[in-house]
Amino acid sequence: MSIQHFRVALIPFFAAFCLPVFAHPETLVKVKDAEDQLGARVGYIELDLNSGKILESFRPEERFPMMSTFKVLLCGAVLSRVDAGQEQLGRRIHYSQNDLVEYSPVTEKHLTDGMTVRELCSAAITMSDNTAANLLLTTIGGPKELTAFLHNMGDHVTRLDRWEPELNEAIPNDERDTTMPAAMATTLRKLLTGELLTLASRQQLIDWMEADKVAGPLLRSALPAGWFIADKSGAGERGSRGIIAALGPDGKPSRIVVIYTTGSQATMDERNRQIAEIGASLIKHW
């Protein structure tokens, strides 16, 4: 067993022997301040990774656009098919120029040779490549099948209805392509620590998230040296922004954090800054 596999296998073990965790309302004060600064709703939840206990939450059962955070769930569904012998990570998928959609920095470079399922998941999570996500959605049967996968996990809230990039439209009061912070946090925890996926697939999923290259201005910008984070960000229309993450000190994750916002007129930089400040408060009061 590799060191990384050992780390993920012992996530519940280490967490069980940690000192009790206590909620700190100071972080919620910052979440509410972010709402004021952005002029928009902000949803927040913080779960203990081992027990699933909610440590703090704000608007945990209000719907927010998922945006690209759905790509972690998508690759979880792909990995479940791999575990069941219905898919192979090494299978190569070929596609054409007509398949390319807006923001496809990886797939646009491989029109000639195609990409493997493993490479597509890596591109979808680490670079948020939209064509990679659409190609992977095709392998599982489309958005409705991802929703069905989530329902089978016990998540009857999260739903995907459309493809990239239309799913980022974020129309107010439109339930399409949305989740709730509580539902997303619980589902992410199941994917990373539950028995739904094999140990190898859980490790692969967290490795992809740990290698995320496009979430630097968010929670990662607030992390002290030595902290662990595996995350996936999302951005959408109407001032929408979000991030889902597993993080913790001492090089291992111990909490799940989900943050979503929508309806702001603020710039992307300002949305990023507010999420980073929430992260800084979380870490300060850990």
Rank of each mutant, 00 (worst) to 15 (best):
R220C: 08
L38V: 02
T186S: 07
H24K: 13
D99V: 03
M209L: 14
R176F: 05
P143K: 12
T267R: 11
P105S: 04
A235W: 14
L79P: 04
I256A: 15
R241S: 07
Q203P: 12
L38Y: 05
C121V: 13
L89M: 08
N173E: 08
T138L: 06
E56S: 08
A215M: 02
K232P: 13
A77S: 07
P253R: 09
I125A: 14
A84D: 13
I93G: 12
L74Y: 14
L100S: 09
G142H: 04
T193Y: 10
S233Y: 10
D174R: 10
R241K: 14
K53L: 05
V257P: 02
L247N: 00
Q274N: 08
T261W: 08
C75L: 12
P217Y: 13
D99S: 15
K144Y: 07
T262Q: 13
N98D: 08
L167C: 05
E46S: 06
W208G: 05
S233N: 04
L49D: 15
E62K: 06
I171Q: 00
G52S: 04
M127S: 10
D231W: 09
R59D: 08
Q37A: 08
D113S: 10
I278D: 14
S128L: 01
A225G: 02
L150F: 08
E108I: 13
W227P: 02
T107W: 01
L188D: 09
D250N: 02
Q274P: 03
K144P: 04
L89I: 03
T69N: 06
R118P: 15
E46H: 14
N173S: 08
D174V: 04
D231Q: 08
H156F: 07
T179C: 05
L135N: 11
H24F: 11
I283M: 15
L146P: 02
D207Q: 02
L247R: 02
E35P: 05
L79C: 06
L160Y: 10
G194I: 10
E119T: 11
V42A: 01
I244Q: 14
E175D: 00
S254W: 08
V101I: 06
N98E: 00
D212C: 11
F70W: 08
F149G: 14
E145Y: 09
V42K: 00
D269F: 05
L136P: 03
E26C: 14
A183H: 14
E164D: 14
D207L: 06
Q86V: 10
L74M: 14
M180F: 00
A132F: 14
S51M: 05
S57N: 08
T187I: 00
E210T: 13
A170R: 02
L150I: 02
G76M: 06
E145C: 12
Q86F: 15
L55R: 09
G142K: 08
I125R: 14
P181F: 11
M127N: 01
A170M: 13
A225S: 01
F149S: 11
L191F: 00
N168F: 06
Q204I: 15
P165G: 07
A148P: 11
A246S: 12
K232Y: 11
M184G: 08
L205W: 09
M66Q: 08
I54S: 01
P25E: 12
L150P: 03
V31D: 14
V31E: 07
A266Q: 15
M180Q: 15
H151I: 04
T186Q: 00
I259T: 07
L160T: 09
Y260D: 00
V214Y: 05
T262P: 10
Q265L: 13
A183D: 06
S68M: 00
G234W: 11
P65E: 01
G234V: 06
K284L: 02
I244V: 14
L223D: 10
E102T: 07
H94S: 15
G43L: 04
L137W: 02
I229P: 01
L28E: 02
E210Q: 12
A185H: 07
G154T: 03
Q86R: 10
R91M: 11
I283F: 10
T262L: 11
L160E: 13
G52F: 01
I275N: 09
S122L: 14
L79T: 11
T112R: 11
V31F: 04
T198F: 12
L191W: 07
A246T: 09
T267P: 10
A34Q: 12
L167N: 08
V106Q: 11
L150H: 12
M153L: 13
T178Q: 10
G239D: 08
